[in-house]
Amino acid sequence: MRDSAEPHTAIADPMLPIAMRVSEAWRELDDVVSLRLVTKDGAPFAFAPGQFNMLYAFGVGEAAISISGDPARTGELLHTIRDVGAVSGALTRLKAGDEVGVRGPFGSSWPVDSEHDRHLLFVAGGLGLAPLRPAIYRALATRHRFASITLIMGARSPRDLLYPYQLAGWTASHALRLNITVDHAGPEWTGSVGVVTTEFARALAGIDPAKVSAYLCGPEIMMRFGAMGLADMGVSTERMWLSMERSMKCAIGLCGHCQFGPDFVCKDGPVFRHDEIARRLTLKEI
């Protein structure tokens, strides 16, 4: 237990979790839950957009989960978790008042402030919106500094769209331009059907691709083809970032699990500039 309320940024012992309390838990989708976490001593928990924490479900284990809340709100941590295994399943079953172990924040972040005056293009596939959302919050906080902000959101079906209440709010307030596309939909769906790349031409209409900064997060194949598609349209490969996912145990580059060629995804990533990893994205099982 910490005795002073300093921000949890300098990681005193990065291997030892701190206990945090679930202040709220709610279901986003059938198999997806969001948790709001607060420190027990009230100390703020600062992080940069795109970073992740290792969340520990007591007695079950630990998983790397991106931080999906607003980086300006350091009094709480938001995590959005899909139930895909023992640990993530246990995390999705936590209730308000339960405690969870937290190590972090770890990893590299989405560069947002460095991209002033440019057109920001966020491309999210499925749950990929969760790690992107802190960057969107950051961009919206200084909305006037960017030429435009666009979010292309891809999902399996309309009912798989993450944070629909927030997408509606962003659109209604004209905070950003939103393009949604889904893989399959019923007759009630009047929007686009197809992979995210099919939205690029519409989303970038009237925008100079040389002035676009793109942030992609989703399944690896989506990011790979998304980045290729944007590059074909003239977006610089040095102005595209994507967030990689690999197995992680330690999150500090000691356990070796997350190696992706010469990089440790936990400490050199998870956010990489596209040109630095473009070749590796084309190699199988790297």
Partner: peptide
């Protein structure tokens, strides 16, 4: 052994 965690009425604690 990296650490031990205990669960009590006070919540979780972690010790090396």
């Amino acid at each position: 052994k990296m650490w031990t965690s205990t669960r009590s009425e006070d919540g979780l604690s972690f010790e090396r």
